[in-house]
C-alpha cells in the first residue's frame, strides 16, 4: 500500500549528479533540494544544459544520483525503483520513443502493459485515451506515417495509460498547432485538478503560465529560485511594455521626454525598421491607463506612428532571472 497520504509526491534532498568524462567533471545537479505536494503542478525552468533533463532522468529511475536522496510518494528512487515506477510516468516527447512500425493502438497496448495495466483494463483504457488525445481516427495507422503533433499526442497518451500518480512532462506542446496545444493544456489542467502531480519542463512559458502554480528555476545544476507563479511574473520589475513607433530621427526625443514621465523605469531605442521608422520601448513599473494620457502629452509634436501596450510576461521574468542566457 502506498504511503502517499503522508509523503510529498516528489521530494529531493541534496540531490547531486556528477558526470565524469576523463579529466572533465560536470556537476549536472548540485545539491538540489525541494518538494512537491500531491496534486500540485510545478514548472521546472532553466536554460539548455541547466540540469532539467538529468533531474527528470533521476526521478524516472533511469539514472542514479551521485549523492543525495530523491523520493516519489515516499519511495526512494535508488532503493525502491519498482515502487517508484508503479507511480510515475515520464513523457519526453519528440520523434523517438515510439515503435514506428506499430499502430498507435498497438503502441498504447504495449506501453500500458509496461506500466502494469492488466489486459482487461487495457481494452477499456486504450480506446478511451486515443479518443481523448484525438487519435481515434488514426488509431490503426502505423506511427511512422504520423505528423510530429500526432506523435506528441501519442507520447502523452502513453504517459497517461498507466494512470500515474506523478507525471513528468517535458515540453508537452512541442509540435502541436495552437488549437491542439490549448486542448492539451486543458487536459493537463484537468489531470492536475483530478489530483495528479505534474512536474512540467517547458520552454513554452505559455504552458507554464496556464498550468503551473509554482516555478523552480535551475541554473548550472543548482536550484536558484523556488517561488509562486505570481512572484515569478513580478520578477521582471515592470508591469507593461509600451512600444512607440515614430518617424526617423525622433527616437531620442521620445526617450528624453519619456524619462521625465514618472513610473517609466526604462526607456530604450530598439532600432529602425526597413521603412526608416524608429521604435522605442518604455517599461512601465505600474500600469494605469492615465499614464497613456500623460505620455501622449509628453509626446506632443513628436511624429508618433503607432503605440502598442503589452503586459509583462514570463519571458521577461525568465530573461531577468537567467540574465539573458538563451533558452
Amino acid at each position: 500500500m502506498s504511503n502517499v497520504a503522508t509523503s510529498p509526491a516528489i521530494e529531493l534532498c541534496g540531490l547531486t549528479r556528477i558526470f565524469a568524462a576523463g579529466s572533465d567533471v560536470v556537476r549536472a545537479l548540485d545539491d538540489v533540494t525541494f518538494s512537491v505536494a500531491p496534486g500540485e503542478c510545478v514548472a521546472l525552468l532553466g536554460v539548455n544544459g541547466a540540469g532539467k533533463t538529468t533531474l527528470t532522468k533521476v526521478l524516472s529511475t533511469l539514472l542514479l544520483p551521485t549523492s543525495g536522496k530523491a523520493r516519489i510518494a515516499g519511495f526512494d528512487v535508488v532503493e525502491q525503483p519498482r515502487e517508484v515506477r508503479a507511480r510515475l510516468a515520464a513523457v519526453f516527447g519528440g520523434e523517438r520513443g515510439l515503435y514506428s512500425m506499430l499502430t498507435a493502438r498497438e503502441n498504447l497496448e504495449y506501453f500500458g502493459m509496461l506500466a502494469g495495466v492488466g489486459r482487461r483494463d487495457l481494452r477499456l483504457r486504450v480506446p478511451e485515451l486515443l479518443a481523448e488525445v484525438g487519435l481515434d481516427d488514426a488509431a490503426d495507422r502505423r506511427v511512422e506515417g504520423y505528423s510530429k503533433g500526432m506523435k506528441q499526442r501519442l507520447h502523452i497518451a502513453a504517459g497517461l495509460v498507466g494512470d500515474p500518480e506523478v507525471l513528468l512532462l517535458d515540453e508537452p506542446t512541442v509540435g502541436l498547432d495552437p488549437t491542439e496545444a490549448d486542448r492539451l493544456r486543458g487536459k493537463i489542467a484537468q489531470l492536475v485538478d483530478g489530483g495528479m502531480t505534474v512536474l512540467l519542463t517547458s520552454h513554452y512559458l505559455l504552458d507554464v503560465e496556464r498550468l503551473a502554480a509554482r516555478v523552480l528555476l535551475i541554473d548550472h545544476g543548482r536550484l536558484t529560485h523556488d517561488m509562486s507563479l505570481r512572484a515569478f511574473a513580478a520578477v521582471a520589475g515592470y508591469e507593461a511594455a509600451v512600444i512607440v513607433s515614430v518617424g526617423e530621427g525622433a527616437a531620442d526625443v521620445v526617450v528624453r521626454r519619456a524619462r521625465e514621465v514618472g513610473g517609466i523605469v526604462v526607456a530604450k531605442i530598439d532600432g529602425t525598421d526597413g521603412d526608416g521608422n524608429d521604435h522605442v520601448t518604455l517599461l512601465v513599473e505600474r500600469w494605469q491607463p492615465e499614464l497613456l494620457v500623460v505620455l501622449g502629452q509628453a509626446l506632443t509634436a513628436v511624429p508618433v506612428l503607432d503605440i502598442q501596450v503589452r503586459a509583462a510576461g514570463l519571458e521577461e521574468a525568465f530573461a531577468v532571472l537567467t540574465k539573458g542566457q538563451s533558452v
Binding site: M1, S2, V4, A5, P38, G39, A73, R82, A86, R87, G116, V117, G118, D121, G162, D163, E165, D193, G194, G195, M196
Partner: peptide
Amino acid sequence: ETGIRRPGRGDRPEIEVRRRRAN
C-alpha cells in the same frame, strides 16, 4: 493490486486509483 490515493480538492473527495503490478 494496490490502491493509490489522490488528494481531494475543494468539494472533490479523495480518489483511490487502481494500479496493477508486474505480471
